[in-house]
Write a protein that binds this DNA or RNA. Structure first.
Length: 409
DNA sequence: TCTGGGGTCCTAGGACCC
DNA sequence: TCTGGGGTCCTAGGACCC
């Protein structure tokens, strides 16, 4: 039974976002070549082991280069590949400029990621929906210099699937009556929320296309894939009851992780990294006026195996020191004494700072920690913090400062 | 010089309580 | 003495998204 949805939803998706945005920025700065027209990718610094493809140009795609693969392998496919360093401040700016334009069309707008968003409209505009989509697409191209794909349908899932159909600089509709022709022939992994692992398991059931999934027995899917089975079956049938959420939902987790340029082998080195990660988390918590009630530490070893430990806190906190001390303890319990490639710290079970402050009692050191953290926030805001190296120097300095406030929490 | 970083959500199993 | 089940909380791990 397909539920009828009374809304029109547009999905706007920037084509090769990072690459397009870097291209626009380079042209703006007077560079001659448009990197969109040559085999190019956006990729990180391989010497810091950030060597993955974050976005690719259309010519690069013709060499079989895919997002997420290593630059090493991308270069083997295309020896003359141009690799461009990402510039996230440019991306944030371009994203913001696009969102400002989109907001002119409706207040019912949900940003889904840095380069995607959903726009909700009343059913009454249905006849003009495509025209509206085209004008949005062309206006972004004209005013901002990059192209987007637009999907038009009656719910978010179908609008998103529509915008993925053929790229770049295209608009597609995907209303329920078009599902059979436009969506069902696609391979199963092109369905939103069906990744590599699920695609493999579905293929073992002889489910190869989205249509195969749509027509499969939902009870068997539910048995094998639990709630996820029913969800992807609904998606394959174009059913999605979720609303365009114009109000930003509260962040549930704040995390920070880093691939270390060379494997960490000692506890002390690991502690230094955990300290700067903890400070980053603490600062962001305080900026959002939030406290966390749970901390987790993740480790990726040199064989790329990940594991993590987490711990619920007795008292919610936004203190660098408490986060760090907890992370240190978690690390000591988790670490298998093998070379470490990546370390991460995450704070979850977030809640309002003010709520926790009134509900807290018996911890007089909170105010002391607060003043220390806010003093350091000011220093960091003034001088910036970025590189792990620089942070480690600051950490050592902070180590001294912190001794005076140690309360053995 | 092969493989980033930041998120959301779900499940399973154990502890503990009634 | 033995057996049982439901509910909640916590942790670890894994799927997916961009």
């Amino acid at each position: 039974v397909i539920k009828k949805n009374d809304n029109i939803v547009l999905h706007v998706d920037v084509n090769s976002a990072f690459l397009s945005w870097s291209a626009v920025e380079k042209l703006r700065c007077g560079e001659e070549v448009d990197i969109r027209n040559v085999p190019s990718v956006i990729g990180g610094d391989e010497s810091r082991r950030h060597g993955v493809v974050l976005a690719k140009s259309v010519p690069a795609k013709k060499f079989g280069i895919v997002t997420g693969e290593s630059l090493y392998s991308a270069r083997q496919k295309c020896p003359n590949l141009l690799v461009v360093t990402p510039d996230f401040s440019v991306y944030r700016r371009c994203s913001h400029e696009m969102m400002c334009i989109l907001r002119e069309y409706t207040p019912d707008i949900e940003q889904f990621s840095i380069d995607e968003c959903f726009l909700g409209f009343p059913q009454s505009i249905k006849e003009k929906a495509e025209e509206l989509g085209y004008s949005i697409k062309d206006r972004i191209k004209k005013e901002l210099g990059f192209t987007v794909n637009v999907g038009v349908s009656c719910n978010k899932l179908l609008a998103k699937m529509a915008s993925e159909l053929k790229k770049p600089d295209m608009l597609h509709s995907l209303f329920p009556e078009e599902i059979k022709d436009k969506m069902w022939p696609l391979p199963i992994e092109e369905l939103f929320m069906v990744g590599k692992r699920t695609a493999e398991r579905l293929r073992n059931l002889n489910i190869n296309t989205i249509g195969d999934l749509a027509l499969y027995d939902v009870d068997i899917l539910q048995d094998k894939f639990k709630s996820y089975g029913r969800m992807i079956w609904k998606y394959a049938n174009g059913v999605d009851e979720s609303k365009v959420e114009a109000v930003e939902s509260e962040m549930k987790v704040i995390s920070n992780s880093v691939t270390i340029p060379t494997d960490v082998r000692s506890k002390e080195e690991a502690y230094s990294v955990l300290m700067s990660l903890s400070e980053n988390i603490g600062r962001r918590l305080r900026k959002d006026k939030k406290c966390c009630r749970s901390i987790s530490v993740s480790i990726r070893n040199s064989d790329f195996v990940n594991y993590s430990h987490q711990k619920k806190l007795i008292n919610p906190t936004d203190s660098d020191k408490t986060i760090f001390e907890t992370a240190k303890g978690l690390f000591d319990n988790a670490w298998k004494h093998e070379p470490i490639r990546l370390l991460g710290v995450a704070a979850s079970q977030l809640g309002e700072q003010s709520y926790y402050q009134v509900s807290l009692f018996g911890n007089e050191n909170i105010e002391k920690k607060k003043s220390l953290d806010s003093a350091l926030d000011k220093i960091r805001n003034k001088y910036g913090e970025d590189s792990v190296k620089k942070s480690i120097q600051m950490n050592q300095r902070k180590e001294y400062l912190i001794e005076e406030y140690d309360d053995n929490q």
